[in-house]
Design a protein around this nucleic acid. Structure first.
Lengths: 217, 217
DNA sequence: ATTTTGTATATTGTATACAATATACACTTC
DNA sequence: GAAGTGTATATTGTATACAATATACAAAAT
């Protein structure tokens, strides 16, 4: 019975995942100081793997590092968030433009179905589902863009800031905006079907990713 | 006598710079194995700062890491390079579009002068100067795009692959291409002056950054 | 009361030690 | 000779120790 290639998990990786998930689920908040010794005792490991994980987390922009004063959870403020949105918009637009020559009927069907699922999620005011299906929608053409580097970059950018974009589930204004967003999705799909490269790129960049989320204002 | 804020240089940073420059100047070649012990003795430091530097270098995509087998200099093959070019094109295009509302007469003058310096560099077949002034040209509007995250991302992307784009100085074909590139620069400047956002963005993305360098074919 | 200074404590940076795993290479076996 | 096996050596992963620096807080000075 072969369970595939035996995957090696270093303590460093373990620490990395531990901290990363604490940042995502809100256990660790922006500007919180990371105490190496505390993590050592929480996970029963020595400082070496902890430090190595922290260095990687800082390099991945989850933590901030100041020499001789250690690591803190990185704050992503609103202006910074808007900057990332601009970049995501351009790259997502590029992905769409590149995907146009490779999209199949099947892809279009998938996107159609996802738009409908998003409608349902909005009607049920289920923000988590909205996020999930919206991500799937964009991933359909991202997976067809033929540029794996672009795909990786985009996913890592989105992961990096989605973690700090939390909405309470009872925000009426939010769901109105999400409805508009899904109209965008319909328009994007239409432009993709029409193979309008420049149009879909600029639409994603200048319209879809320029929505102002309530908590960002 | 104040020499400004006393800057702290850790051994880790020292090692980082040491390896990074060896990769850039070709002392270390793609797929070369990094020997921790060897670096320790070269720099007279212990393995701890060396390992921490290596982890960061891997995170910054200069090295590749395989658990239990250590670090190697990352190979950037041609398809990968083309992928990065596509991303750089989109981001540089975005930067240009964003800069349009902030560019001053002074900026235009600067770009004009740089285009002329590039002409001279090509005439003298000085590729190093060409690279330098070409970088300055793009930096003029990059510095006006108003998005520091974009600026950082773009610079780090370019640094990451320029290091492995070396040209011998006696390639006639190359200088013909560089001449075309500088014509692009003139066109870009014209579009910027005309404040044609979408046009300059798409031109940078779909024309300027789609040049095929000789060694990439 | 506020600022300054001094000292104890905590935290970070680096070196070293040792255990776990991978690599190299001589030795068999077919 | 090719392929496999075993063992010595090298390399990596982790723990620990100690030195350098930062932080906290009490005491002294303004």
């Amino acid at each position: 019975m072969n369970k595939g290639p035996m995957i090696y998990h270093s303590l460093k990786d373990h620490v990395y995942n531990y901290i990363a998930s604490q940042i995502q689920d809100g256990t660790l908040l922006p500007n919180d100081k990371i105490n190496e010794a505390s993590i050592c005792s929480q996970l029963n490991v020595s400082r070496t793997p902890v430090r190595e994980a922290l260095i990687k987390l800082a390099s991945d922009n989850l933590l901030e590092y100041r020499p001789r004063r250690g690591f803190t959870v990185k704050e992503i403020d609103t202006p910074k968030k808007l900057e990332v949105f601009e970049i995501v918009g351009a790259l997502d637009g590029l992905a769409a433009a590149l995907s146009i020559d490779h999209l199949t009927e099947d892809d279009f069907t998938k996107m159609d179905k996802l738009i409908k699922k998003i409608d349902v999620s909005i009607a049920l005011e289920n923000y988590q589902d909205y996020q999930k299906y919206q991500t799937y929608f964009h991933r359909v053409y991202l997976n067809r863009c033929g540029n794996v580097t672009l795909k990786e970059q985009l996913i890592s950018l989105q992961d990096g800031f989605i973690r700090q974009t939390y909405f309470s589930d009872d925000n009426k204004e939010l769901y109105a905006i999400l409805h508009v967003m899904n109209e965008h999705h319909r328009h994007i799909l239409k432009l993709l079907k029409q193979k309008k490269k420049a149009d879909v790129q600029l639409y994603l960049q200048n319209v879809h990713w320029k929505i102002e989320y309530p908590e960002m204002i």
